[in-house]
């Protein structure tokens, strides 16, 4: 169920602009990997190339290799639609489908490709997914109400339930708690800790305490100036990145001495 990711030689462009240069990184299965770095250094851009979501943006393209348990996501004949059903994504702003009920939101990905699912299986999947996202107890009495009626933190957990309902191998999260209050943030962090029992989790965060609380390994990205490409500076166990970084840039950033 949970798979590892190996990235090699990856360059990402927006048109002619090289946004991320030459990334090489291995991400373990059943672990939480955090991407940190200053704004604009290409964390979101790189994250999106891991499930080919960058292809949604006109002009964006990636060169290089991304292997999911050894299979190249960019190989010939690989359908990005299939890639995205194996590698789910949670966004910065909670985005449940406003025209769907809570229940239909959870089932949205499952019903794609005209898959049929029996009423009983659907009920069970809705319950287990919402349980998995620590949301079941709060919504079990109003599954037929619109998802947009929930609080921001609940909406974000609904989005996580929707992502895990399709049983992906990997879950990508782009600053999933940055639009939430501290209590909802804590709920999301607890949830991420539980998710790594079953999934490979990759999370972008601008919050270094958050990275050190929840991740096993941390990747620090940096950019030399505007118009320059973002680069992976250092990647290692989270405790090392924060207490004993090898690169001066990393140390400057994690100690808050960043220009």
């Amino acid at each position: 169920m949970s798979k590892r990711i190996d990235v090699d030689n990856l360059n990402v462009y927006y048109g002619d602009f090289l946004a991320v240069e030459d990334v090489k990184m291995g991400i373990d299965a059943r672990s939480v990997t955090a991407f940190i770095g200053p704004s604009g250094c290409g964390k979101s851009t790189f994250l999106r190339t891991l499930n080919r979501m960058h292809e949604v943006i006109p002009g964006a393209r990636a060169e290089g290799q991304v292997l999911l348990d050894g299979e190249d996501l960019y190989g010939p004949g690989v359908d990005p639609v299939v890639v995205r059903s194996m590698i789910g994504m949670v966004f910065q702003r909670p985005n449940p489908f406003p025209t769907m009920s809570i229940r239909d939101n959870v089932l949205a990905g499952v019903k794609l490709n005209s898959k049929r699912i029996s009423r009983g299986d659907a009920d069970a999947l809705v319950e287990s997914s919402l349980q998995g996202a620590n949301l079941w107890n709060e919504v079990k009495d109003r599954l037929d109400k619109p998802g947009s009626g929930l609080s921001g933190g609940q909406q974000q957990r609904l989005c996580i339930a929707r992502a895990i309902a399709v049983k992906p191998d990997v879950i990508l999260m782009d600053e999933p708690a940055s639009a939430l209050d501290p209590i909802s943030t804590l709920a999301i962090e607890d949830l991420i800790n539980e998710l790594k029992q079953d999934y490979t989790v990759v999370i972008v965060t601008h919050n270094m305490q958050q990275a050190s609380r929840i991740s096993d390994r941390t990747a620090f990205f940096n950019i030399q100036g505007t118009g320059k490409p973002g680069k992976l500076i250092e990647y290692g166990p989270t405790s090392e990145i924060f207490s004993n970084p090898k690169q001066q840039q990393t140390e400057d950033y994690v100690s808050g001495r960043f220009g």
Partner: peptide
């Protein structure tokens, strides 16, 4: 909203879906 279009695509929806 782009937000919702991307939510669908990230679940593995085709463009028509």
């Amino acid at each position: 909203p782009k937000l919702h279009e991307e939510a669908a695509l990230a679940l593995g929806a085709t463009r028509w879906e």
